[in-house]
Amino acid sequence: MPADATIEPFRLHVHDRDIADLKTRLRLTRFPDQAPEAPWAFGTDLAFMHRVVEHWRDRFDWRAEEARLNAFPQFMTEIDGIPVHFLHVAGKGPNPMPLLLSHGWPGSVFEFLDIIPRLTDPARFGGDPADAFTVVAPSLPGYGLSFRPGQKRYDLAMIVAVFAELMQRLGYPRYGAQGGDWGSFITSRLACDHPDRLAGIHLNLLPLRRDTAGIDARTEDETRYLTELAHFLKENTGYQWIQGTRPQTLAYGLTDSPAGLAAWILEKFRAWSDCKGDPTSILSLDRLLGNVSFYWFTGTIGSSFWPYYARMHGPWPIGARIDVPMGYAQFPTEILKPPRSMAERVYADIRRWSVMPEGGHFAAMEQPEALAHEIAAFFRGLR
């Protein structure tokens, strides 16, 4: 592991014995029964999980997914005493703009493997080479390869400090930033803490407070959002409460059982993606399991919960009005879709607000072409 400020090239290679161990555990999966109601009514469907486990055990090729990741330049460095893994992909154009991409949970850098080429080499996809970015896509501390057992846990402010140091270390005094899920919080907090370093920020989730305070029920858009928020808080926050209060307890089951891990993660891909009830209708099982396997082989599901714990036991992470230019792409099956009137109370300079025709929470995976287009269009005037 590099020490001090050194940066070393990296390639992932999971040991054959770890792949064999995974297949053994999958063969020994002990399935629960399912309540006699509609599939998915109470969580991940049993028939779906039989299909997932069978595919993961008998047909899934981890080496192919590993090669997809290794096709991109990867590096390791040490910041604040922890390993930081990141992709650093040079843009192909006359003046590529540095762009920091931040993922969230239950995603990883695997979310970005289809969108990065569209950002770094737009001409390859029929775009303008003047829109090229040089992409830096780190694994969040505690996620994937930015982890060693027993390391300290990071809240969002600490992650922002690590990413700001990484961009400085790479020689980028000014850059753009983009994110969804926790990545949207990180990107917004970065704009709070280091506004002088950012040309602009682009989000595909709005990190606004999830309570009723400040909602104006006299307006149609905010009334609609109030109903949406009430349903979300009642029906879709159970995972936040357990991850945010007893992360260690949950980690035992999901670190020991690959079927349990897949059920926990893939339920979110079904609920949050624009898949009409079947996550494999928008993302193949191989793509879904590439991301799940990355959590499995790195043993990071427990440490990945920490932003939830820190969020529930600390202040709201975005405490100031943000003046950095902001763009937003609202995908139709995003978890929550606050109206622009609410966003304007936090973001003072909204330059682009796009309502997308299809796609969901995992936009970089689901709709890489559409999201890349939005990112390029937003930053075009900020280079």
Rank of each mutant, 00 (worst) to 15 (best):
I7L: 02
V14W: 10
V14R: 11
D16L: 10
R25Y: 11
R30L: 09
P32R: 13
P36R: 10
W40E: 13
W40M: 05
W40F: 09
F42V: 11
A47K: 15
H55F: 14
W56F: 09
D61H: 10
L69F: 11
L69A: 08
L69R: 09
A71I: 03
F75N: 05
T77D: 11
G81V: 02
H88C: 07
P96M: 00
P96V: 00
W105Y: 13
W105D: 07
G107L: 04
D114A: 06
P117G: 00
D121M: 04
D121W: 08
R124S: 12
A130N: 08
T134V: 01
G142D: 03
K152G: 07
R153N: 08
V162F: 09
F163S: 06
F163A: 03
L170S: 08
Y172E: 09
G176N: 05
G176D: 08
G183Q: 05
C192A: 14
D193K: 13
P195I: 00
A199R: 15
P207K: 00
R209W: 09
D211R: 06
T212A: 15
T212R: 15
A213M: 10
G214C: 00
I215A: 01
A217L: 15
A217W: 11
T223R: 15
L226P: 05
A230R: 13
E235W: 12
N236D: 15
G238F: 04
G238A: 10
Y239E: 13
I242R: 14
Q243E: 11
Q243M: 09
T249V: 04
T249R: 12
L250P: 10
A251V: 03
A251T: 01
S257Q: 08
A263L: 04
S281V: 04
I282G: 09
L285E: 14
L288A: 03
N291C: 03
T298H: 08
T300Y: 07
S303N: 05
H313F: 04
G314E: 13
G314Y: 06
G319L: 03
I322G: 02
I322V: 03
D323E: 12
M326D: 08
G327F: 02
G327A: 00
A329K: 11
F331A: 02
E334K: 04
P338I: 00
P339E: 01
E344K: 01
R345K: 15
V346Y: 13
A348Q: 15
D349G: 06
V355D: 11
V355W: 09
G381K: 06
L382S: 04
R383S: 05
